[in-house]
């Protein structure tokens, strides 16, 4: 379609993401997709897109984009103080942008990953059913890489009519990115932890180490002692907390390895993966054990928040 935005500065690490390629797991390809799917979905709904449309995922800092055509954008997720032509604009809100307008960002106030949706959905290279960027395979999104200055962003199709700005997600329905409690369900190998390590898992404070990216986060903090024979490799899931022999836990994220043999002592529930997806090196976090039933309630209240956006647009 048409080039709607030009990349003046790409930001620290900005990639095209959608909801990933779950059907490729059997080939060992990470599922990928937005780290914070709630923010990704909300951004799309705010501009009248489908939830599966591609958005930009901006890590730690935002890009500088120049509008080539009139369009509607929405910025969700982390608060990097978005601005249009230097004037601060609201997060979680659909905004009209005119040709020549400049979208820039200020300081990082909360969260680690902001999402930018454009009405019509962003165009990206499709690979195995998804436009999500996979750096290892150098496929998907913007030619399998993060954005660089000079890139042109095009929309996948005409935006739906009439164009409406001002849709927003009320504050009370937004995730609280400053609360880093991740709710988790005890995992298949929880019994391999000794009593003290189990207490630490669901009680101690951990820090996201410098070894943290879209694949997963190594966590600094107390070491967790596991016992037992080596496990045969099995299929993994995002949110799984692996504990290698040395005892430093790893929280698996969107681009996680598809199989592994380390004990999985707990798994972060889907409603908490959004907050997990906002974490960056240095952030503190803790795990709190929940039941499947509680996880269901949390999931449903997030779905209801997104449904309210959909109703809003009718």
């Amino acid at each position: 379609m048409k080039a709607v935005l030009r990349v003046v500065e790409p930001g620290l690490f900005t990639t095209v993401q959608d909801l990933g390629r779950p059907n490729a797991i059997a080939a060992g390809v990470p599922p990928g997709g937005a780290m914070d799917r709630f923010a990704h979905r909300a951004a799309n709904l705010l501009v009248g897109n489908a939830e599966i449309d591609a958005t930009l995922e901006c890590t730690l800092s935002g890009p500088h984009l120049r509008a080539e055509h009139a369009c509607i954008v929405a910025i969700t997720g982390a608060d990097f103080e978005p601005r249009i032509n230097g004037t601060q604009v609201a997060n979680w809100t659909g905004i009209f942008v005119s040709p020549g307008d400049r979208l820039t960002f200020g300081a990082r106030r909360a969260g680690g990953r902001a999402y930018i949706a454009v009405a019509g959905g962003l165009e990206g290279d499709r690979w195995l059913g998804s436009a999500s960027t996979n750096l290892m395979a150098a496929r998907g999104g913007m030619h399998g890489r993060n954005l660089k200055a000079g890139d042109q962003l095009t929309t996948a199709r005409e935006a739906s009519r009439p164009a409406v700005s001002g849709h927003h997600l009320p504050e009370r329905l937004r995730p609280r990115y400053t609360d880093h409690t991740l709710f988790a369900i005890a995992g298949p190998h929880i019994k391999r932890l000794d009593a003290e390590s189990r207490r630490l898992l669901f009680g101690a404070t951990f820090n996201v180490s410098r070894e943290a990216d879209r694949m997963g986060y190594r966590l600094d903090g107390p070491r967790l002692a596991t016992s037992g024979d080596e496990l045969l490799s099995f299929g993994l899931a995002a949110g799984a907390i692996q504990v290698p022999r040395a005892g430093q836990p790893i929280l698996l994220m969107a681009d996680h390895q598809t199989a592994g043999g380390y004990p999985v002592v707990a798994t972060v529930v889907s409603a908490s993966l959004q907050v997990a997806g906002q974490l960056v090196p240095g952030d503190e976090l803790r795990f709190a054990e929940v039941t499947i039933e509680r996880a269901r309630q949390m999931r449903q209240s997030q779905a209801a928040a997104l449904d309210s956006l959909r109703d809003d647009l009718r």
Partner: peptide, 18 residues
């Protein structure tokens, strides 16, 4: 059968390389 979060299960048929 073990929970792997709230949207996945791990079904273990055995523990041997077989």
């Amino acid at each position: 059968i073990h929970a792997l979060g709230d949207t996945a299960l791990l079904a273990e048929l055995g523990t041997r390389l077989d």
